[in-house]
Design a protein around this nucleic acid. Structure first.
Lengths: 139, 139
DNA sequence: TTATTTGCAAATCATTTGCCCGAAG
DNA sequence: CTTCGGGCAAATGATTTGCAAATAA
């Protein structure tokens, strides 16, 4: 069973109120204002843990396996931030947005993506610990 | 001025026809079937270069700085894959999608993002070389 | 007490870079 | 020729892990 720790609480609070995407290093620097001798390893461990619990929503949508090219049917994904499972979302496509955005910005657009992050039904049930095996990603 | 090289051509062709997001390591393995003594460094250099030229659209939307929480106004971004410039896209928000997707999948959704990738007008003009200073990201 | 979490340091992994050589123009 | 691009190996940077000590339940 999971124990609470001051370190984890401070990190969670920090992430909850942070507007931009913090780097692990930045989190480390900030948290040390409250817990001067916390170690970087602990910061990494807890970010990862909080992600796997679905507590952290500040993490980016990085890793959304989105892609688009002429041959492929465009579709979007939803990723479980705990077990890493990725499901396709069919029936939603925003292709027309590309043209609108190209016109508005002057960019040569190569692709776009839509991705959702969350915790899947299976993982919501089981509160089993330490299965967080995915890399810490904040960006 | 930029010279062509067999290595770059092979890598570009491979990326063009690859459906999933290849890792640099995977690209390396594949390319070695054609050019057995290519080095991993060359693979990295060329992927990066191709990205900065807007030739590669297979790269993911990673890094889209997307975020969402109650306090913040949700908005999307477009990123120049050459100079890294990020522009806000205002006036488009797909918030209602979250509820639809939650209902359809049973996920506890923590956030979603929409991102566009391309080459910005400034970079499209200047064909100047070697300003690609961003990390290689494939995912 | 006992299982979990920490701090620390060493290990690992991905990516980048320096240098000299071979090749494209 | 004269650069540019490549191979190789060493350097860097980020993240993870092993372990003994500290701490929550």
């Amino acid at each position: 069973m999971r124990r609470r720790s001051k370190q984890r609480e401070v990190i969670l609070n920090l992430l909850k109120r942070t507007k931009s995407h913090p780097s692990a290093e930045w989190v480390y620097t900030e948290v040390r204002k409250e817990i001067p001798n916390i170690s970087l390893g602990t910061v990494y461990r807890n970010i990862k843990l909080l992600q796997s619990m679905g507590e952290v929503s500040e993490i980016s949508c990085e890793g959304d396996e989105c892609r688009f090219d002429g041959n492929t049917i465009l579709h979007y994904h939803i990723t479980c931030q705990r077990c890493g499972k990725i499901m396709d979302l069919d029936g939603i496509v925003l292709q027309s947005l590309e043209e609108r955005v190209a016109a508005a910005t002057g960019f040569k657009i190569t692709n776009h993506c839509v991705g959702f992050k969350g915790v899947c039904p299976d993982c919501l049930e089981q509160s089993s610990p330490e299965r967080y095996k995915y890399k810490v990603r904040l960006y």
